[in-house]
Design a protein around this nucleic acid. Sequence first.
DNA 1: ACATAATGCAATATATATATTACATTATGT
DNA 2: ACATAATGTAATATATATATTGCATTATGT
Lengths: 65, 65
Amino acid sequence: MKNLKMKAARAEKDLSQGELAEKIGVSRQTIGLMESGKYNPSLQLCLAVCHVLSKTLDELFWQDE
Amino acid sequence: MKNLKMKAARAEKDLSQGELAEKIGVSRQTIGLMESGKYNPSLQLCLAVCHVLSKTLDELFWQDE
DNA sequence: ACATAATGCAATATATATATTACATTATGT
DNA sequence: ACATAATGTAATATATATATTGCATTATGT
């Protein structure tokens, strides 16, 4: 499923996918895929996103199934 | 670094690494490696661990560095 | 002390996350 | 309408998570 929380948090910081990717040191596609929910990122990557977007894991990635 | 929070949460449920692994559908080694901090698990795996151990992502995997 | 369960740790194999490049489409500003 | 930036998406290549098997070591119970 799409990760709209991450998309919103990125918007809050006024960053493009490319800018966020660069800050994290990852490719733009990886960010795009995370937001479109096309795959299963690593914990390190999630933590890096959290730090740049000033959110916690629960705020961006929690999902009660 | 080691993940002692996960180890403690597993102890709280009185599960062995093997039992936890089986409940999640993953190998025992994967659980062992997660706890010994030897690698970088996927978000799905973290979420599965959280659900079995009744914890959130932040409780088990957050680290302010 | 013994038996058994739990854990740590290698080596190799396989699945999949991520990079790279490229192109098409959609948004945004002038 | 045009230019440009942002995004979606695909194909292939590479790095790495995870499985599998096996053995050594440490804990736990009797």
